[in-house]
């Protein structure tokens, strides 16, 4: 009997260990929709394992209304560097991902300086948004790319302004 139990125990020890799911998040408050706002930025990972995670960035108002959201597949956008069970690395990534750049649209490059396809706006609209000095938030969308969105107070929402290439030390 004891031998049979030991055999079963040994068998279970040999069974392949499944990596834990990669469902985790990181969040911070920031002022984007108004100078005194307490908007909440949440970065969330979700996947059967960390090498198969998707990541979603969501900015909500203090009342919970979504202001901006963006998603990508973690390994495609940020590199095939996350091991299946390495939750610590993904948590570290999420913690760094929410450290977004906050500025205003006057800091956006002139229309003529944008790369082809960097904005979906026409020049008139882009220039107008730039001139209005609206809140601007830029977050990483890849290892060397950022998405920049602006706050449109008239619409009560954020919109995509432009994409840009960056290196991490420029953050």
């Amino acid at each position: 009997m004891m031998r049979a139990l030991l055999f079963l125990l040994a068998l279970s020890a040999c069974a392949p260990a499944h990596p834990p799911r990669c469902d985790m998040s990181s969040e911070r408050t920031l002022a984007f929709s108004a100078p005194e706002a307490s908007d909440v930025l949440v970065a969330r990972a979700e996947g059967p394992s960390c090498d198969k995670a998707i990541v979603v960035l969501s900015l909500r108002s203090e009342e919970g209304y979504p202001l901006w959201t963006w998603a990508t597949t973690l390994s495609h956008a940020f590199g095939d560097v996350f091991a299946p069970g390495d939750r610590e690395a993904v948590q570290d990534f999420l913690n760094r991902w929410i450290e977004v750049d906050l500025s205003t649209t006057t800091q956006a490059p002139p229309f003529a300086m944008l790369e082809d396809g960097a904005t979906t706006l026409d020049q008139l609209t882009y220039d107008d948004i730039r001139a209005r000095d609206l809140p601007m938030l830029c977050h990483y969308s890849g290892t060397s790319a950022q998405v920049c969105v602006f706050w449109e107070p008239a619409a009560g929402g954020a919109g995509h302004l432009f994409d840009r290439a960056v290196t991490e030390n420029q953050e």
Partner: peptide, 27 residues
């Protein structure tokens, strides 16, 4: 979302192995 009026919605395609092929988020 905290309520359905405040929901973020997410569309994801994964292959049979669970690898994410595409994902997209909106409200």
């Amino acid at each position: 979302g905290p309520t359905c009026a405040q929901a973020v919605v997410n569309f994801t395609v994964r292959n049979a192995n669970g690898d994410p092929l595409w994902t997209f988020a909106s409200t």
